[in-house]
């Protein structure tokens, strides 16, 4: 019984105690999410207007992370950018997970030749460096945040498809799947009601880890210039706009860079924490 998860009506099983480090990661992720959801409502309007007299001020009590070349507050621009960055990453991961789940389900349910064809297609997808392909797609569609999101969504699915298809094949060996076949359920019901729900566990772990990775790639694409465009407060675009001041006003580059790094690592670690806590062989449940 490796596939059970928390569900209604079940007695709560003993939970592992959270280590201080795990707690810190979870708190950090919550803070990031709260900043993304509510931050923009508190941000002053001045982050979208120039105030040249106040430009490139070092961190102070008034401007915690200093100001950039346009005199805009770096901290509040980061908070405003968190929504763009995280929302876009969520969207990207959700979109390519949907593609991956669909391809995996069709491969697992379909005849052998279809399975082979889809898996060879997945091999091709895995062999191509997704960031370069996304770069090509985004450039072809015209540089904008939307093209970066679409490009990443159509290049990110192969790992999900490969992983899930393997797990679904394994689930299909279960006795309850044979039981459903004996009962005469349709192929559609067999996959959606019996196989898929008992295979999706691993995607929860992968989903959190993928968010971290996507934040990084999205910021990279924006930095190169094919993603969000200045004056968007998106983090990669912010770094790109401020990179000329790295020697005179370090905070304009280091602060958004640190935001990307910390967010990416925090979601990656969250994935690891969920994995450990769900895997019975590692002491979780």
């Amino acid at each position: 019984m490796t596939t059970v998860s928390a569900m209604s009506g079940a007695p709560r099983r003993r939970r592992l105690a959270l280590s201080p480090f795990d707690t810190a990661v979870i708190v950090l992720v919550c803070v990031l999410l709260l900043a993304a959801v509510f931050g923009p409502f508190f941000a002053p309007d001045s982050i979208y207007t120039s105030d040249i007299a106040n430009s490139l001020m070092p961190p102070s009590a008034a401007n915690w992370f200093g100001t950039d070349d346009q005199g805009r507050d770096v901290f509040w621009r980061l908070v405003a950018g968190a929504r763009t960055t995280l929302l876009s990453s969520f969207l990207v991961v959700t979109l390519y997970s949907l593609i991956g789940v669909t391809i995996a389900t069709v491969a697992a349910a379909g005849p052998r030749w279809l399975d082979e064809a889809l898996m060879r297609l997945t091999d091709i997808g895995l062999a191509l460096p997704s960031m370069i392909v996304a770069l090509g797609f985004a450039a072809a569609m015209g540089p904008s945040l939307k093209s970066a999101i679409i490009a990443m969504a159509i290049t990110g699915w192969p790992t999900t498809a490969r992983l899930l298809r393997g797990i679904m094949r394994q689930t299909m060996e279960s006795q309850f799947v044979a039981g459903a076949q004996v009962l005469g359920v349709s192929r559609w019901r067999l996959m959606t009601k019996h196989v898929l729900p008992n295979s999706l566990d691993v995607l929860i772990v992968k989903w959190a880890g993928d968010i971290g990775n996507t934040v990084l790639v999205l910021a990279s694409l924006s930095f190169i210039g094919v993603g969000a465009q200045p004056p968007s407060p998106e983090w990669g675009a912010t770094i790109a706009g401020a990179r000329g001041y790295v020697s005179t006003a370090w905070w304009t580059v280091v602060m958004p860079g640190a935001a990307v790094a910390i967010t990416s690592i925090a979601f990656g670690l969250l994935g690891d924490i969920i994995q450990v806590r769900r895997d019975p062989s590692l002491g979780g449940n």
């Binding site: 019984m1 596939t3 059970v4 569900m7 009506g9 279960s174 006795q175 309850f176 044979a178 039981g179 459903a180 004996v182 009962l183 005469g184 359920v185 349709s186 019901r189 009601k193 019996h194 729900p197 008992n198």
Partner: peptide, 29 residues
């Protein structure tokens, strides 16, 4: 023609309630 399997721990889908499990045949047919 119906079947009962050997392993009662593996032959019931862990994500379906008893009502869904027992009622599935009525639904499918």
């Amino acid at each position: 023609v119906q079947m009962v399997f050997q392993d009662p721990y593996g032959s019931l889908n862990p994500r379906m309630s008893v009502e869904e499990l027992i009622g599935e045949g009525l639904l499918v047919h």
